[in-house]
Every structure is written in C-alpha cells, then in structure tokens.
Amino acid sequence: MRVPLLRTGVGAAGAVAALGAWQLAATAGPLADSPLPTAADSIGTLARLFATPELWRALGDTVVMAIAGLLLATVVGVVLGVGIGTSPLAMHATRVPLEFLKPIPPIVILPIVVLVLGPTMAMGVFLVFFGCFVAIAVQSAAGVFDTDPVARATGRSYGMGRGEILTRIVLPSALPYIGTAIRVAAPTSLIVAVVAGLLGGGPGLGQSLLLAQISGDQAQLFAYVLALGILGLLVQGLSQWGERRLLHWHPQYRKEIR
C-alpha cells in the first residue's frame, strides 16, 4: 500500500515540476520572447472557458460525433466481421480490400468527404466511422474465427440451429476481441472528431482550436489543447473501465481479477 502511495506522490511532483518548468520557460527562460503563454495563464483561461457555454457546446459536438461514428462503426464492423469469420469465402473475398483500407487513416479521404457532405456533423460522423470500422471488423472476424471448434461441435450435438450457435456460442466467445477493438477505437474516434473540426471545418473542439490559432489567442489555444488532453484521459479511462465492467464474466477477464 505504501509503494503505490509513494508512486502517486512522485508522479504528482513530476506533473507539478513540468508545469513549473513551463512557467519558468515562458517567463524567464529561453522562450520568454516567443509567443508561448505561461502555464498560469493557460490554466486560468481554461478555468474561464469552463464557465462559458461555447466550450461545452464544442465539447458536446465533438463527443456526439465521436460516439455516433463509433456506434455506426461497431454495428457495421461486427456484422461484417461475423460474416467474414463464419465464411471462408467471404474472408478471402474481403482480405485484400480490408488490408488496403486498414493502414489508410480517414484524414486521407477528408477532402472528398468535406466536398460531398460539407462542414457538418454528418461529415465528422462519417470520418469517425471510416477510421474505426475496418479495425473492428478485422478484430471481430478474428474473434469469430477463434471460437473453440469443440464448443461449436457440442452445440451442434445438442441440436442447436445455426442461428442459435451464432448467438449463444460464437458471439459470446468473440466478445473480448470486439471489446478490445472498441476500447482501442475509442481514442481514435475522439482524434478523428477533432481532425474533422480542425481540418474539415466541422463543428466541435477542433474548430475552436483553429479559431484560437487564427485569432492568435495563445492562452486560449493552449487552454483548448489542455481541455483535449483531459478529455482524452477521460475517454481512455472510461473505455477501459467499461470493457472490464461489461466483460467481467469472460474467462479472459476472470483471470486478471484473481
């Protein structure tokens, strides 16, 4: 118990030291002449921003885009993945297109998407969807493919139909793969939602960031970046917690708790 406590203390000291170094660099250090705002200024601006409706509206827009896109990607990805995982023909047919799409980030297709859908929420949702669905599909397919054949055969011996085997054996056993894929995709969805605002002109925190940069308001720019960092930490923590919470019954997670 004492070691984790010491560790937290040292970590907090490190964070304070980092803030102190920032403050020092902006006031007295080599960066004093550059437009770098001080840490106190940025945090003060952030605190003031938290009291304005603009920040909350931008935050809401970004989160809604990220979640809507992620949900869409999950539904499409899981359906596609189950299809790929159950049929070898579908797996071979989709391998090359999926392998090609996998390393291509949504920022590549951003220009055409902005042109077709305009700088709207729908554009952001589509970009998030594009950025997440391939990974979810590939992971679900791997999960379905990894189902214990003995369990499958047992189901068949008990006279289960194909649909019942799918919903009661294959899907539950693939859930950890799907859960991991969604946990990994959650931060990505947030990043893409910010990119949609920053480069695509869509609503949300990305746009606020761009406006702060264009208007040259350094303290506000840094405050928005700090807000994004806090949001990112929250998303990471929540998705980890949610995954553990929802899948605690699966053998793969039971081991960890013991």
């Binding site: 964070a15 920022i107 931060p187 947030l190 990043i191 910010v194 990119v195 920053l198 480069l199 990305g206 960031l209 761009l210 702060a212 940069q213 720019l221 928005y224 970046v225 994004l228 960092g229 806090i230 949001l231 990112g232 930490l233 998303v235 990471q236």
Partner: peptide, 12 residues
Amino acid sequence: FFRAIPPVALVP
C-alpha cells in the same frame, strides 16, 4: 497526459 492529447492538436 501528453499522449492523451490528440496528436493533430499539437500542430496548431
């Protein structure tokens, strides 16, 4: 904390 910031947000 730095890693949680979307990397693209560092560009501005």
